[in-house]
Every structure is written in C-alpha cells, then in structure tokens.
Amino acid sequence: MKIVACVKAVPEEQDISIKPDHTLDLSKAELKVGQYDLNAVEAAVQLQEATGSEEPLLVSIGTPKGLKNTKLQKAMLSRGAGALFGVADDSLDSIDALATASILAAAITKIGGVDLVVCGEGSGDIYSQQVGPLLGQLLGFANLNAVSRITPRGEKLEVERTLENEVEVLEVTLPAVLSVTTDINKARIPGLKEILAAGKKPITVWGAGDLAMTAASNIEVISTLAPPKAERKQIVLEGDSDENISQLADNLRKVL
C-alpha cells in the first residue's frame, strides 16, 4: 500500500506579534509542523507498520523558507516517514484551501500509484479543515473526514468516523483520502536517533512550474487584523497562602 501523509509548516503562534495597526507580524515566528498534521503522519506510519508496506511519503506545500529549512525537514521526517516531497515557491504563501488541494493533487499524481492520502484535521494556522475534503474530490478518491480509527482489511480499510452524535464504521475501497481526528493516536516524539536518521532521508523539492496545475483563486483576503484587546487588571498574587486565597475569594465575591 502506497501511503502519503500531508504536512504543513506553520508559524509558532506564540511568536506572532501584533503591530500598532493591528496587522500581524509573522517575521519573528519560527516555523513548526502543524500540530494536527502529526496525527496524520502517525496514522500513516501505524498503517504502514500494520500492513508491512513501504514507509509512507510526506507531501508539503509552502514557501522555500519553510520547505528548504533543514530543521523543519527533520521535524517532518523523524516520525517514521520514508521521504519528503515538497512543492516550494514564494507565491505559495497564504494560498487558499482549493489552491493547496490542487497542488497537492498534482504532486500526488506526479508521485504516482498512491493508494491512500492521510490529512490532519486542519492546519495549525488557518484551520479551515477543508484541504482533505477538497483534495479527495479533486483526485476522485473515496473521501472521508473525522476518521478516528483505520484498520487494514485485506485490500480495503475499515474506518471509524466520530461525528457529533454518532459513530460510523465504514468499509473503504482504495484509493482514498482520509482526514483524521486529533485523537486517532498519540503522535510519537522523535528521539535523537530518529532526528539524525531523518537528515539522511530523500527529499525532493519541486518548484511550482514543475507541476501541471492551475491554482487560480476566486477568494480574496481583504484584511487580517488582530481584534481589539480588552484591558485586564492583571492583579496576580504570588503563592497559595491562606491569606492570598482569602484575598482572591474577596475579589471573586465582588464580581458574583
């Protein structure tokens, strides 16, 4: 079974600062692998282990800053995947979900012979939760989200979906795109050995021109602004002495 997991480099949200005009300053934000993509990688690796197939491949779309960054490449490849395919171009910063899905579709088609694509629930930054669903439709594969368990059943997969009020158990014929929940597994934490080994894994980075695709978008971002922040008193007592707790209780009583 040829398995691909999709991963995105996202800015560390704690390093995002807000400029006086309320726009965001991302320049100091380090890039990291989207938190929920780790579950997709883990699900792909666990399925590979269960079926004895070749190591899963990773596909990532983004800017050269992210995809050619060796620390980030290692963060992606130290969790059990065998190789990384990137599509990097400066024009691919903040593209919409359809554009991302079309480029992923083109990359997956170029890789060829892919049976299963695993996506996370949503990217760590924009979190539209749409790339998996769009990608499944573009590729014409079986297409499911909210997948909370994947079990191989011969040539097929048995998949559990956790929805708001019900759980579905489904039999899926490959090829498929599955978007997994964040509780499908606990993503492994790579050790030093895995991180070193990741440096030796094959990495292919394509430019936007290397793929057959049209990523025209009819959605325009008018503005991205931080909302006004409420002023807070920030009266913080240090230490859980009885006196401090009494004072907190007094403050709390005033607002009850």
């Binding site: 359809l98 899905a101 939760q129 749409q130 669903p133 499911l144 909210a146 956790t162 708001e164 978008s217």
Partner: peptide, 22 residues
C-alpha cells in the same frame, strides 16, 4: 458539522472554488 464540512469541500471542488470556512 463534520459531515457538513466534508460536503462543503466536495461541493466547492466540484464547482471549482474554495470554501469560506467557519
């Protein structure tokens, strides 16, 4: 909802557009 989100993606891709999410 989960199924709503999936269907939104399916419809949008079929119509050649993206989804205005959430």
């Amino acid at each position: 909802s989960r199924k709503g989100r999936l269907m939104a993606g399916i419809i949008a891709a079929a119509m050649g557009t993206s989804v205005l999410a959430d």
